[in-house]
Design a protein around this nucleic acid. Sequence first.
DNA 1: CTGTACAGTGAACGTGTGTGCACTGACAAG
DNA 2: CTTGTCAGTGCACACACGTTCACTGTACAG
Lengths: 212, 212
Amino acid sequence: MRVSVDPVSRQERKQRTRQALLDAALGLLAERTFAGLSLREVTKRAGIVPTAFYRHFESMDELGIALVEESMRSLRRMLRAARNDPSTYRDIIRASVLTLYEHVRAGEDHFRFLTRERYAGTGPVRRAIDVELRLFSSELAVDLARFEYLREWSTEDLRMMSDLLVTAMLQTVLELVEARPRDAENDAEIVRTAEKRLRLITLGVPNWRSRR
Amino acid sequence: MRVSVDPVSRQERKQRTRQALLDAALGLLAERTFAGLSLREVTKRAGIVPTAFYRHFESMDELGIALVEESMRSLRRMLRAARNDPSTYRDIIRASVLTLYEHVRAGEDHFRFLTRERYAGTGPVRRAIDVELRLFSSELAVDLARFEYLREWSTEDLRMMSDLLVTAMLQTVLELVEARPRDAENDAEIVRTAEKRLRLITLGVPNWRSRR
DNA sequence: CTGTACAGTGAACGTGTGTGCACTGACAAG
DNA sequence: CTTGTCAGTGCACACACGTTCACTGTACAG
């Protein structure tokens, strides 16, 4: 097998069509639930014939899971950015919320997909999101453990807190992504509220005593 | 036609069929999204012919909105119960969470419907839930304003907090309703975590200073 | 240059869908 | 007893769906 330099090699073309399918689905999901997508629609938008779909995915569910993976990459990229942001040390909450805001507005469709399908379906897509989000929350818990006040928290309590933070953040994502009207003023309002939420949650930390 | 033993008035019979439609839909929603329901399915389960559907609702969306209203009645009943529970004064958080738990397990389908469709659809059903939940959060904010520490909070901050509480509670609802495995042990775990969440949030309250 | 693997095609199928229409028969009012 | 109302029926339609199958054209390996 040869690794071709030619940009239109066979496998690359296939990869390109696959991506077109993913993009088509994601585009349609702007105004529909994943369960409400039809294979025919997606292929039509991707510019191929319905039956060719099966050359790339075994079923729509499989495409959905690929979409979850793609979307989670956005989320992790965000977490990484937040970790490496030097301004984090001055005001971690403000910095985190701003990072969230920028990433949401940049990869809107992915975030919308995740937040909507997180609750919507019953199928494999939902389960995949659930698993990935649990993992994500665990990573966040590890980060949290590094903070002064949180050093002695039980892992269970840390998990509780990171779950709470993730939920609050995803709630903000939803507000941003579903916002109407969509102007800078409204965005600022949402961001401000998000900050307050996190502020309130973290204010409780110094008073926390682990209990059984 | 149906030969009924007990005499029932005409409108009462109609009301009964309407309710059968609502129940049928709610039942099917245990494992599907509202958008994924078909009119034919619902009528079949309700025991009438598809076309008779239109005697009761103009469209599935209209039925969905009726379902939202019905479900919100469960939610409000819960809030009222929480307000009138005398044990609330001893430990408001524990009392609230237990009230939530009992109501969720009692009217499971309604709660599942609300929490799922809150994010799922794009249609009128979702909008209806959004409006109702905003209203609900306002009511809660009014209740909050009566508390010692919260007396001087701005209405905006009160809203922020009640939204946070509602979101945390709905998250708990979701965990309960989607729980697997569904046993007493798992339930207890969920309830315990829910309590911790609220505990953490309220711990921040005494330290809060409203800021612009 | 030849043969093959394979992405994409196009017609065909069976099924489930929402809705229009003319209908039936039980009830309630006159 | 007569009559109008109306919840529920049964048939029909046009359409969109997922999936099958035999096919075509071309990039690549030998």
